[in-house]
Amino acid sequence: MFKVLRRVLLLALVLPALAQAETFVFTAIPDADESRLQQRFGKVADYLSTELGVDVQYIPVKSYAAAITAFRNDQVQLAWFGGLSGVQARRLVDGSEALAQGYEDQFFKTYFIAHESAGLDAGETLSEALKGKTFTFGSKGSTSGRLMPEFFLREQLGEAPEAIFSRVGFSGDHSRTIAQVESGAYQVGAVNYAVWEKELANGEIDTDKVSVIWTTPTYPDYQWTIRGDVDQRFGEGFKARVREALLGMDDPALLESFPRKSFVPASNSDYAPIEDTAKAIGLLD
């Protein structure tokens, strides 16, 4: 009994373990190549720390929703979001703002890929031949793996994915989408083009088994979003300095983490099409 009491007391001391340092914290959605995130984004944190003159930390998250929640709860003040997650996050935090996007994000696209056994050929549009196949998205909250492919499926075939395909799954990750289509677990999948190109370049894809059958039109995607209250917490003009630091990032070793050629300015209005699309397919109310 006494032992028990002692344990309870010990833990009562532990529970409110809430660190309270004035650190500028950022995160990034886990869209691809999650391993060694800490290492890769640690370098970005160091860079920002030098540029901004404050302590900067990166925390890894496991899901899009976790990134949004952390941003909403002020656990992070800056985040590298996808198109959709950025829109969701900015809806939840008044005054938050898209600061910068990758050069490539101005015209991002999704590949539809298929296993060879599905007998689908590459074409200019999505064909009716897709009907009845099995299909996997990436993560449920992904722009390139969920939102835009669903939008184009509806636009071109006039039906919800559940009606087009015999089964719709969510692999949770672009790399896993490729692996699952390559193994034939799903016949068709939608994948972030940048992830596909990178894995293809690394020789990780067996193109005899899986190939691209359609490329979507371009749309805006990833961006850095910052909370509106950072100027109050970190000093006047802090937001502007963060934008400068992001746009000025030119070390290829840093840019490789994203991977982007460079960053260009972005604004909330750049993502209006994404928000409209999300509303159109019922992902946002």
Binding site: L13, V14, A17, L18, A19, T23, V25, N73, D74
Partner: peptide, 14 residues
């Protein structure tokens, strides 16, 4: 005691 020490530090939680 070790477990308490090992618990991950909470970063940036407001």
């Amino acid at each position: 005691i070790i477990a308490v020490v090992l618990l991950p530090e909470t970063v940036g939680f407001s």
